[in-house]
Design a protein around this nucleic acid. Structure first.
Lengths: 346, 346
DNA sequence: TAGGGTATCGAAACCGGTTTCGCCCGCCGA
DNA sequence: TCGGCGGGCGAAACCGGTTTCGATACCCTA
């Protein structure tokens, strides 16, 4: 059956009307057929689907969006490009999200924030919602009392929070029950090896995860009978991790072990320790966080807290699609962060 | 002026008709006003814009898309999630692209490929084009004789190739004139330090960049009077970089210097070298590629070839927007890849 | 004063689907 | 035989913009 033929230059695109014409029925019937809706006979459905297939017709996502849902979800990452590049967290998260979206015919609309402040960020979400570009959004990297929580409610924008927010919020979230898990395990690991003076180089204190980890860490140190000799706040960059480490080493009571909020700060910390004439792990033990793929190749191979970020993305996307009315199979159960023991912590 | 008020639950969204009603004009006039088109008096324009502003109206992206352009561009990355996470290349590329798109009211539709073969990838592009989700696409990570080149032409999909394709193709591209640049510089650096037995651990030989670099490398080695003692092909993963390095060291004529196609393979290679009882750089010099942000913190700090990937994204996005009829300011001039000298190569 | 040109504006068609609602017809039971 | 019921289908409204094209009004010149 030659339906379309050579598609000469300037040929207009095939529309639902063409299919209706070919099938000898109405647009409404074609619509019902391709959307698997009731109110149409099995024979008609089969015939229409075959014709649609043969003619290579695909519904215009634009028209579908105007009449109904856009099948698009948004993700706004408001980090500076170099932090984004340094930290594979978001790449993995996006991969996990995408693996679910792709399976259900959804698409991801991504915005790398200009990092121009909360006003600008809010404007981005407004634009996303009010222009109807997306059906819902994922809120990543939340901070304590995140202004986006009230914003998405005001906008009526379906949203799922990535990782547990610090204070209870009227939005669904996905992530480990205990976002600080792995920190206590790390502390026990260190104390068992005689490291009783512990320091922590953390990320921005406004971040929910920093608060969770700090709380878990302090509790674990107290439980183990060790003592905290320093907590340094950074912007999560390697540079500030390096500086924080130097400061810790110059203290009157320097740490015997340092935990970092991500692996790249741990790398930089190791350099600072070595530059001070000390050895890792003999003089100072080092524990990272995230388990970058390069961490096992570092010298010494990095002991670090690993979490399943890909799986986190999968769960968040699943939750959002369900919120949007899709039926999505239950994803694999979720693992709490866990300590990966290598050489850098003895 | 109270236009919208408290926006009670269930309030329908503000549309162009509401604005027309408020302004006492027609939808057509409102449209002309907000799109800065001629055929409307300055007073009317100002009044309409003020009313639109006050009522918080934003044109529906869905309706705009149906009637015209979607102001969305697509990027399909067909890599496995762990490679994506390990390699910050794409995060930086996307950041660069986004920085341009955001400034011009465009959005990025991202698909992380399922890595399910060329058929599947082609289907993704077809869907993107035929459903009208995007106005154009960026083609990253091209291979020699990439099947997407003919595909986008067949689909009539505006496209820009990221980095120079290997063979001339009837599509615009952006990137350094000499994609292999930096490799010759690295070779000279090594030979000047007496390393005359050189090996190369490269990525998949189908990739354009691998072909460019290989050619440049071979030429540079010949010019410098050194000799190639091995070229090992990998999938660009650290694991295969590690294995390739071991194989090189076990050769009858082991290399005095190894160049890697990315930094994570260089890291893994260093571990393999040390595991063989050799030192970096005393026994074997190592040169990476890409200059990951962690590379300067590695032990020893990695000598590597750096390129401006963010700038590459900027240029490609600019080129695409221009192709789509936007007027975009000329981006900063483009730098060829350059060698960053640290400690790992003597 | 008549005629021609120009600037401003609006009615209506259009983009390509979805959805509502009513019609028609065949089948069934009374 | 007749009335009721329900499945299958289509006409038309609708989503919210853009664009075309004709109407009107105004100004200037001959």
């Amino acid at each position: 059956m030659e339906v379309d033929g050579q598609r000469p230059v300037g040929r207009k695109r095939v529309t639902i009307s063409d299919i209706a014409l070919l099938a000898g029925c109405s647009k409404a019937t074609v619509s019902k057929a391709v959307n698997h809706q009731p109110g149409i006979s099995a024979e008609a459905r089969a015939r229409i689907l075959r014709i649609a297939e043969l003619s290579g017709w695909r519904p215009s996502a634009r028209a579908v969006a105007l009449a109904g849902k856009s099948r698009t979800v948004g993700l706004v990452l408001d980090r500076s490009p170099d932090l984004l590049a340094a930290d594979p967290y978001h790449a993995e998260l996006v991969s996990g999200i995408e693996s679910v979206l792709a399976r259900h015919g959804y698409w991801l609309l991504l915005r790398i924030g200009t990092h121009a402040g909360a006003e600008q960020e809010a404007a981005t979400y407004r634009e996303l919602a009010q222009s109807g570009r997306v059906d819902g959004v994922l809120l990543a990297e939340t901070s304590v009392d995140d202004h986006r929580f009230s914003l998405v409610r005001e906008l009526g924008l379906p949203a799922v929070v990535v990782s547990r927010p610090w204070s209870p919020v009227d939005l669904p979230w996905e992530g480990p029950q205990h976002p600080g898990a792995g920190m206590d395990e790390a502390v026990r690991h260190l104390v068992e090896r005689g490291r009783d003076r512990i320091a922590y180089v953390c990320g921005p204190p406004s971040r929910s995860y920093v608060v969770y980890r700090t709380r878990t860490l302090l509790q674990a140190v107290a439980d183990a009978g060790a003592s905290m000799v320093g907590i340094r706040q950074t912007d999560a960059s390697a540079e500030q991790g390096h500086a924080a480490t130097r400061a810790l080493l110059e203290q009157p009571r320097p740490p015997a072990a340092i935990l970092y909020d991500n692996d790249q700060m741990a790398f930089a910390g190791c350099r600072a320790i070595q530059a001070a004439g000390l050895r890792v792990p003999e003089d100072v033990a080092v524990v990272g966080h995230d388990d970058l793929s390069v961490s096992r190749w570092f010298s010494p191979p990095l002991t670090t807290v690993a979490q399943d970020v890909f799986g986190l993305g999968v769960r968040c996307a699943t939750r959002l699609l369900r919120l949007l009315g899709e039926t999505v199979e239950e994803p694999a159960p979720f693992a709490d962060p866990v300590l990966v023991v290598r050489d850098s912590a003895g």
